[in-house]
Nucleic acid binder design. Sequence first.
RNA 1: CGGGGUGUGGCUCAGCUGGUAGAGUGCUGCGUUCGGGACGCAGAGGUCGUGGGUUCGAGUCCCGCCACCCCGACCA
Length: 525
Amino acid sequence: MTPPHRAGLAETMLSAFISLLLQNALARRNPASAFPHNQIASITVADKITSRQQDYSQWYIDLVRSAKLADYSDVRGCMVIRPNGYAIWEKMQAALDGMFKATGHVNAYFPLFIPESFIAKEAEHIEGFAPECAVVTHGGGEELSEKLYVRPTSETIIWSSYKKWIQSYRDLPILINQWANVVRWEMRTRLFLRTTEFLWQEGHTAHATPEEAQEEVIRMINVYRTFAEEYMAMPVIVGKKSDSEKFAGADATYCIEAMMQDGKALQAGTSHNLGQNFAKAFDCQFQSKEGVLEYVWATSWGVSTRLIGALIMAHSDDKGLVLPPKLATRQVVIIPILKGNKDEVRAHARFIARALNHHGIPTFVDDSENNSPGWKFAEYELQGIPVRIELGPRDIEQGKCVAARRDTLEKTELLLDDTLPANIEEILNNIQQNLYDRALLFRQENTVEVSSWEEFKAKVEKGFVIAHWDGTAETEAQIKEETKATIRVMPMDAEYRQQYSMDEPGTCIRSGNPATQKVVFAKAY
RNA sequence: CGGGGUGUGGCUCAGCUGGUAGAGUGCUGCGUUCGGGACGCAGAGGUCGUGGGUUCGAGUCCCGCCACCCCGACCA
């Protein structure tokens, strides 16, 4: 066998390589080889990461830092998103941006600074946001005549523009999204989940009718659902927020709510029906077909880098990050076992990488000699690379390699022939599906319907609790006060509602008053 | 804003009743290794968070300040 050499490799040689591999595979004598590596030895990875069982929140922090996703900065409450973490965000952005464009939206950019008077225009809005705003008082060495708020969200600055752009029903709808950073001066922060500055996208749309606005609100929350399920492999409950949980300035807030591995809920995305609140605050009217002046109907919707936190807490384990393949910029790592004829092993590894990349599977080779293979196994598991290929001289001799999948840590032997790319692809698809199934099963196992207050208090410590609620803010506040659990969502999905017979009338779990429906309670991030 | 904790090589930390700074890990170089976080040898790296005080002498004792982390109340 002539080992391929790295010099002069070109895409055109790919098919030659594949047939070479094929020949090797056919020629090999001993397909069921003897060396035992289809089981994972129970290694004690240096206690780099606290186990989830020991301390869930410490596990999260350890993971984020050791997988090099983010780092604390020297600014309180702010984080540095490192390349590994930013890569996930870029994948999320790309997928979401495509979905926004496909639903007719365009991107634009509005200023970071918002005049104080703008923020103050919508009563509920300023009440909700002012306390957590950073305010600029000086510029160019002089005190500003009007303070500038660093945007906590952009409704006001955007509506001040929309007012200028909208005169007629012909100007509607406006369907704009912006990718931006925002600042909210939170008291307590947590990497990705809540930081003073974070990255997000915010869609802001303007419509001629309430029906059209409502349609948009639902369309976008469904876009988020699709993204969560198909890309993040994270099941979510889609529904409406109670009045006390809704956005400051909205008539209604819809959300996708996910369950983390500790049973707590995490709001992963929101879509607001803003009614005419901002149009009225900014006096934004349009002339209808009938010639009548009417206020514009608005929506806004957003997801943030918090999704990265959700992703981590939904899937990862004590060995590190577990990434769904669709959000992995690097789906396969090849680790050559460099002994014997190193150059040959290396060359094969690179050839396989080339073949997989050619097949659309982002693959890289770590053939450095600084670290042992075992070190590399652990390191890339920590970083969540979905599939690892181990390739040593013995494999090459026998025309095969070992593929280890990150979600189950299972190893399988694969032939080094032209079936390899398809086989790897299948594993990647399986991982994507398995992560979703696993998370869904976990959510189902940790969701209970309760009918007594005692049971409620016990069960709400971990997981989702479905119970009757009398619909009043007083009862909601009381429950929060006593258990720290809140109403996470009033699900819209008919199947979900039916599964937990949520439309059955009954008596409120706390007050005992008549209740027309059940809602989902949980402790939340 | 309450409660707790921590500030000492890049990181994790030790440093006792004060005597002039150490380990592990990481880093650099060379060599041997390599199928689950390998090993040997040789190196580089610290105004001990900060200001003051006590003392012949402070990483260590006293007072102030600052910063960060964790837990709670608020929030995506």
